[in-house]
Design a protein around this nucleic acid. Sequence first.
RNA 1: GCGAUUAUAGUUCAACGGUUAGAACAUCGGUUUGUGGUACCGAGGAUCUGGGUUCGAUUCCCAGUAGUCGCCCCA
Length: 441
Amino acid sequence: MSKKNEVTTRALSGFMELLPQEQIAFNNMLDIIRNTYETFGFVPIDTPILERFGTLLAKAGGETEKQIYQFTKGKSELAMRFDLTVPLSRYVVEHYGDLTFPFRRYAIGKVFRGERAQSGRFREFYQCDIDVIGNEVLDLRFDAEIPSVIYTIFREFGFDAFTIRVNNRKIFNGLFEGLNIDEFRVDIMRSIDKLEKIGRNGVEKELNKLGIVSEKIIRIFDFLNIKGNSQEILNALKQLDITNEKFDEGIEELSKVVDMMRQFDIPEKNFAIDLTIARGLDYYTGTVYETQLDEYPEIGSVCSGGRYDDLASTYTDRKLPGVGISIGLTRLFDQLRSRDLINIDFVTKTKVLVVPMTEDIKQSVSIATVLRKNNISTEISFVEGKLKKRLTYANKKKIPFVIFIGEDEIEKKVYMLKDFVNGTQEILSREDLLQKLKRAL
RNA sequence: GCGAUUAUAGUUCAACGGUUAGAACAUCGGUUUGUGGUACCGAGGAUCUGGGUUCGAUUCCCAGUAGUCGCCCCA
């Protein structure tokens, strides 16, 4: 808070800003995500942060629309993207002729939602998406591959106890059709999604409010109360007295997806069928996923997604079914950080601080260049004042090595290397210095 | 959009209807010159904005603004 111009220097609420050491940790997680996506053969794209308002609005609706940041510049009605999937569908339609299908793309970027910020809920946050888009058709096996990417990433993050929960929207839709309450589909799913939070009574109350008769509510809970391992759930579903084509189709799909997830070597403990998962944007039509950390369920979902059969239908007559998932890295990172679960290993990536002790900096610059060419991050200290001050800088930033270059060193063409960790110090030739640093780092 | 709650140094927190609003951490300087961490000494730095009550308000009241938490929604 600077008084100078009476301008608040605080970042806006809901916009995460990190210290360098945190940002390094954050970027490390981003790197893991990006690398994993690429090893699965997803290609990168980067769509604009701003889109025409009409483009975003076409697929949004209801609550989502209220949360879109929109503004007018000149005569243009613009809006900030609220996710990466709607821009993707626009992108695919626009570049349809240049893309190879199934189109496997990843996108990492900030998205914006104009809502009230609170714990774990941001107005600007990173989404890290993968999607597979088919031309006319998309094999169900892709639905099982997506969770295996997620599994790989969370293992790379170092997590062991996490669960990828799977469900299929067709089961819900079939159930609601069968009970003749399809018109309340969206509202019902939202209530069901809150089951863990508000309990059975809370959900019952909400369903009552919608005007659903108690006999049907009981049927819904018969369905929701199905528990057990994946096989038990599937068996119980088949025995439910629901005659609806969609319902059966959903069970069939879910059954296949789960079976294939096993073939992708995802351990049983890391996935589960969860019939209460209804969450997610309106456009999901089949498989839906949600991932949570077993030890921190209160964090909520850090990775959600699903299958959508008609995402681009507002832009084109072509049928472009897709399946994908999004990691909400900002939320994940923020929640881990507030629980002290982020390892802050580095304040900087600098490994060597070169300290010129004279006006002549030629040798300092020269050795810095050599080290950098050898991929050793190096800074040169141009700080005025006492040597103490310059060493304090290295100490604070936890830079492990300092090289002193004074008159003696310049004269003899040698380097005084100080190991900050051990506190040792030695005079080395350029070649020995390089070899030693390479070995140590 | 709705509700609750909070607002004092860079940060986390004190205090008081009445003289210079305290502390810790952080920052900067010092404890003799080419050697950091620990210790000691010192310095700078704050009552969100506007009204009201009062002899007097940072303190009490109202409004605004902003933060936080929750609802809605969602990653």
